[in-house]
């Protein structure tokens, strides 16, 4: 079972813990590991990373941070009578990497957590919300198609002079106005059909294709155990890393290695899962 085929609940447990941990820490080792894991998962699962764009973002944050924060001992140079320090620059780099890591996790979430999963999640929170959500999803392409049709027919009728910007704007406004009448009138008909089929009944149940399997239980338990270990590490002084006034990382002990190992396993779970799946697939083909 691929990572994206897990039950939505397992995915939510995973993403909430990963994103929360990535946002909480400023320890460069953990930040870099999280960034690396997010990048690998994106490359493997989403088939793309737009890494250039995000490197520019990291660069921009690293450069701007020393301009605003003048803490730190090691002065690199003075700019407009302001101290530009090495510590502030390092802090900028780490926070930039952390932000991009978080954005990557959100990208992966967007790729893995498809519309039907989101609908399942909303439906658990509030059934009516999920109905609105799924109907709006269907209406968006419909509305866009109708808008195009109305626009084309208005264009042919030549009701507006489209050579000027004002004429174009008026045309679009006119199309939009017609679109609203059409959409709402049609929607009311849909609503009445829904009503006659028992939408307003209290004991209505929601359709869901997702089944909670044995692997999901294993996955959630594994994630929760690793969450606990990682939280222990993050709250202990072992993790503390100071940027100001000078960069200090004193509390390194051999036990840190164990915690970091667990942290890596937790963050690499999508990659580990999918690679083992691919290998198993290959292996079973060659056997036949």
């Amino acid at each position: 079972m691929k990572f994206s085929e897990l039950h939505p609940l397992s995915l939510i447990v995973f993403f909430v813990s990963v994103i929360a941990f990535s946002m909480v820490t400023m320890n460069p080792i953990l930040v870099l590991l999280s960034f690396f894991a997010a990048l690998c998962s994106n490359l493997l699962i989403k088939n793309g990373s737009d890494i250039k764009l995000y490197l520019i973002l990291i660069l921009a944050i690293s450069i701007t941070n020393p301009l605003f924060s003048h803490n730190g001992e090691t002065v690199l140079f003075f700019l407009f009578d302001q101290r530009i320090t090495l510590e502030a620059f390092c802090y900028g780099v780490v926070s930039g990497v952390r932000l991009v890591g978080v954005i990557y996790w959100f990208r992966l979430f967007g790729a893995v957590f498809s519309q039907d999963k989101l609908n399942w999640f909303l439906g658990k929170m509030s059934p009516k919300l999920s109905v609105v959500f799924s109907m709006a999803l269907r209406f968006i392409p419909l509305v866009r198609k109708n808008a195009k049709d109305i626009y084309n027919s208005q264009l042919v009728m030549q009701t507006f002079d489209t050579s000027t910007l004002k004429g174009k704007f008026n045309l679009i406004i006119n199309v939009f106005s017609a679109l609203i009448s059409l959409s709402i009138e049609n929607a009311i008909e849909t609503a009445d059909t829904m009503r006659s089929r028992g939408f307003e009944n209290k004991n209505r149940s929601a359709f869901s294709l997702f089944r909670f399997k044995g692997k999901d239980i294993m996955f959630i338990i594994a994630v929760l155990i690793m969450d606990f270990v990682t939280a222990l590490y993050l709250f202990s002084p072992l993790e503390d890393f100071y940027y100001y006034p000078s960069i200090r990382f004193e509390n390194w002990e051999n036990s840190s290695l164990f915690f970091i190992f667990i942290y890596v396993i937790l963050f690499m779970l999508p990659v580990i899962n999918d690679i083992t799946e691919n290998l198993r697939w290959k292996y079973s083909i060659s056997k036949i």
Binding site: K128, L129, M135, F139, I172, I184, I188, A191
Partner: peptide
């Protein structure tokens, strides 16, 4: 919203308004 909006007509109308404002981003 869950408690106050009851009828299917209201629910669907809200969905249409959402679709219109999302599509508005593409139309203009």
């Amino acid at each position: 919203f869950e408690n106050n909006v009851q009828s299917s007509r209201e629910t669907v109308t809200i969905a249409v308004m959402i679709a219109l404002s999302v599509a508005g981003r593409f139309i203009f």
